[in-house]
Simulated assay, not measured.
Amino acid sequence: MKIMCLNGWGGRLHHVLLPYLATTAPEVLCLQEVVHSPASEKDWLTYRDGDHVLPQRANFFRDVCAVLPDHVAIFCPAAQGVLWDEDAAIPSQWGLASFVHRSLPIIGQVQGFVHKDFSADGYGDHPRSRSAHGVRVYDGAANRAVSVTHMHGLRDLGGKMDTPPRAAQARRLRDMSRQLSQPEDAIVVCGDFNVEPGSETLSILADAGLTELVTGRGFESTRTSQYRKPGRFADYMLVNDARLVRAFEVIYEPEVSDHCPLCLEL
């Protein structure tokens, strides 16, 4: 089974990302930073937050669904606000999504918030609402259940240092994975955690019996050249049994986001 985790950067590199996803088509795709604007047929809208202005692929969720037609798609919004079509405000939702190939029965799900709750009247002040989602699937080829839980961790304007809210979200993520999983499962926890190696977040997950694969296997970054700020790590993938890992890679080429895809084969 192939599992991919990626922050899709709002679809900014969709012209590269969508063909990449269509070609690789992992059985389970965990995608963060997903935009869903069902009231608009526009391809692009604009996100505005003070001086922070970004193009957003207006229906990024729909775009990915179109290139993965054989996957069950689940969108999990964290907040509802507006994007802009010039001077017109367009209702839009922002969150994460999971895509599961139809050949894998989904035998369990968990969805919830690791920070705050659903923000229905705007994206809110930083640090903003953050959600997580998990699926438990049955892998018939391996005759076992696999649980995969992912989140998009807090973005703190002060940086990626340890904070009490980040520790709290790590515990909630851990608890959501435990709620979803059975003891005999292959367990995967992943996402854009927005923390550095050595963080309290990773310690909390390690104490829960999970092995971190990115730095543990010697990868020196999860960022592409599109990311211009200091700090080369944000994304992590952890498993409960490293013996089940057939292959693990951080994909640097092609550049499909300012984050690298994390690709696990069990």
Rank of each mutant, 00 (worst) to 15 (best):
E212V: 07
C190P: 09
A186E: 10
G8C: 15
D121A: 12
L180Y: 02
I90Q: 11
L262P: 00
L45P: 00
E253T: 15
F113W: 07
D258R: 03
T23K: 14
T215W: 12
V148H: 02
P91N: 06
L96V: 05
M4V: 02
A242C: 07
R155T: 13
D162S: 09
V239C: 07
A168C: 05
L262R: 03
K42A: 15
R228P: 08
G8N: 13
Y227V: 04
E253L: 14
R128S: 05
M161C: 08
R217A: 07
L29Y: 00
C5G: 12
V188M: 06
A25E: 11
D121K: 12
G124H: 10
N194S: 08
E86W: 14
I3E: 02
D51F: 14
E196K: 12
H36Y: 15
I74A: 12
F113P: 00
L31R: 00
V250H: 01
D192G: 05
R144V: 08
T215C: 11
N7V: 06
H101K: 11
S103G: 13
K160E: 10
S103T: 12
A58R: 06
C190E: 07
F113C: 06
Q179W: 01
L21M: 04
G108A: 09
N7W: 04
F60M: 15
I107F: 03
V110L: 00
Y20S: 01
A132L: 13
M4E: 05
F113Y: 15
G218H: 08
E200P: 00
A120D: 12
A145F: 08
A120W: 09
I187S: 02
M176F: 11
C190I: 04
A186K: 06
E200F: 00
Y252L: 09
S147D: 10
S103D: 12
A58S: 09
L154I: 11
R102S: 13
V245K: 05
A132N: 06
E265V: 07
S37E: 01
L54G: 01
S221H: 15
A120T: 07
H150W: 02
V16M: 10
